[in-house]
């Protein structure tokens, strides 16, 4: 299912540089080395504001999902995915039948590249 187009802003520029080259970037604390979500501004483990970008493995599991029904469009599956590095990311699940999605299901990142926008991470079943 196609994703929409999104444009970068200052906060997301490096993240979208990553998706353009096929990398899913998350944050890592410069002080305690703990992982943080891409949009984090403060380390959730030690409170440090010093966060750097680091590539995630791109694998994780479904924490929660919803099948979204919009008028005049086929349903899409969206999910909160817990990356193996611990942060959560809100994404679209592609190539997954709604009735087959389960909590704990293993998923792997892929990138959709809609024309006129940034590359967006989506997740699909890992096997």
């Amino acid at each position: 299912m196609p994703v929409g187009t999104v444009l970068r802003d200052a906060a997301t520029a490096e993240f979208f540089d990553g998706t353009a080259r096929g990398e899913l970037l998350i944050r890592r604390c410069d002080e305690c080395r703990g992982p943080a979500a891409p949009q984090a501004r403060t380390c959730p483990h030690c409170g440090s504001p010093l966060l750097s970008w680091t590539p995630a493995a791109g694998t994780g599991q479904v924490v929660s999902w919803s099948v979204v029904h919009a008028k005049g469009a086929p349903p899409i599956v969206v999910a909160i995915v817990e990356l193996d590095e611990e942060p959560w990311i809100q994404v679209q699940l592609t190539d997954a039948l709604p009735e087959e999605v389960r909590g704990g299901m293993r998923v792997r990142v892929a990138f959709e590249r809609p024309e006129g926008g940034e590359a967006i991470p989506v997740f699909r079943p890992a096997n």
């Binding site: 919803s66 909160i80 679209q92 809609p114 967006i120």
Partner: peptide, 30 residues
């Protein structure tokens, strides 16, 4: 036009309170 983090969630299909609360409820159910 969608921009930034919120824009990425919206472009992924997570664009309303309905969907975010659905994700919360789905977790409670599981």
């Amino acid at each position: 036009a969608l921009t930034g983090w919120q824009g990425m969630a919206a472009a992924s299909g997570i664009y309303s309170a309905n969907t975010m609360y659905a994700l919360a409820a789905s977790r409670h159910m599981q």
